[in-house]
Simulated scan of single mutants.
Amino acid sequence: MGPAQIVLAVAAVCYLMYRRYLGDVLQAKRLLILPVVLTIIGLSSLGDLRTLSVAALVLIAVSVAVSLVLGVLRGFTVQVGDRDGVVWMRYRAVTLVLWAVNIAAKVGLGMVAHVVGAADSTGTGVMVALGLGILAESLVVLARAMRMESTLLWSKRDRRTGAPVAFGPSLPR
């Protein structure tokens, strides 16, 4: 993982955490696009997996699994509610704690990678794991939001009409 990707990952996570901690209208588009982009960037940086050691592949798999589990847990800690008939979301303190655990796990796995001689995995799977973890969180939040009777938005405004764009019907309770 090069310096540009590290800066991109840190900036994306900081932006995401800041916006979600402040709370905002839940927009399905915004919820899904960032993790998909991060995952695609991560997959493109993996290159040829055949060149990685078995230990490196195992550490990447563990990193992805940890990110997925913590992403699902974070999704359940996000406050999802109604404001003026529209679904809102907001990170809670426990959500930020789970982010800290995720970051600590990545640092720990990086240390393990150096100890077992799999340093080639240290940055290789981080972006994929990050993207998939955020995607798991987003899908849990989206599923919870779809069960609400409030309007779930795809985006705040349609570019042509300026009207809010709804995202599918709410699921029955």
Rank of each mutant, 00 (worst) to 15 (best):
S121C: 00
V87D: 07
V107Y: 13
L135H: 03
V128A: 11
L142C: 06
L152S: 04
E137S: 08
G2P: 06
L38G: 08
V87H: 04
L26Q: 02
A163N: 10
G110P: 01
A9T: 12
Y18P: 01
G108Q: 04
L49E: 05
I33G: 05
L31W: 02
T124W: 01
G168R: 08
T151D: 12
A61D: 11
L38A: 15
L52F: 14
S45V: 08
L59Y: 02
A136R: 05
G85T: 13
G123L: 13
G71E: 11
Y91H: 15
I41F: 15
L109D: 00
D84M: 09
G168I: 02
T77W: 02
D158T: 12
L34D: 05
G123C: 05
V58T: 09
S121Q: 00
Y91C: 07
T151N: 09
Y21H: 03
V54N: 06
R74D: 06
L152M: 08
I134V: 11
R147W: 09
I60H: 00
R74Y: 02
V80H: 08
G117W: 08
I33F: 11
D82R: 06
T122L: 06
G42T: 12
H114T: 03
G108H: 04
I103F: 08
V37L: 14
L49T: 12
T77K: 09
L59W: 04
L34N: 02
G108F: 06
V165L: 11
D120K: 00
V37G: 09
A136M: 09
L73Q: 05
S63H: 09
L142H: 05
D120F: 00
R90D: 02
G85V: 13
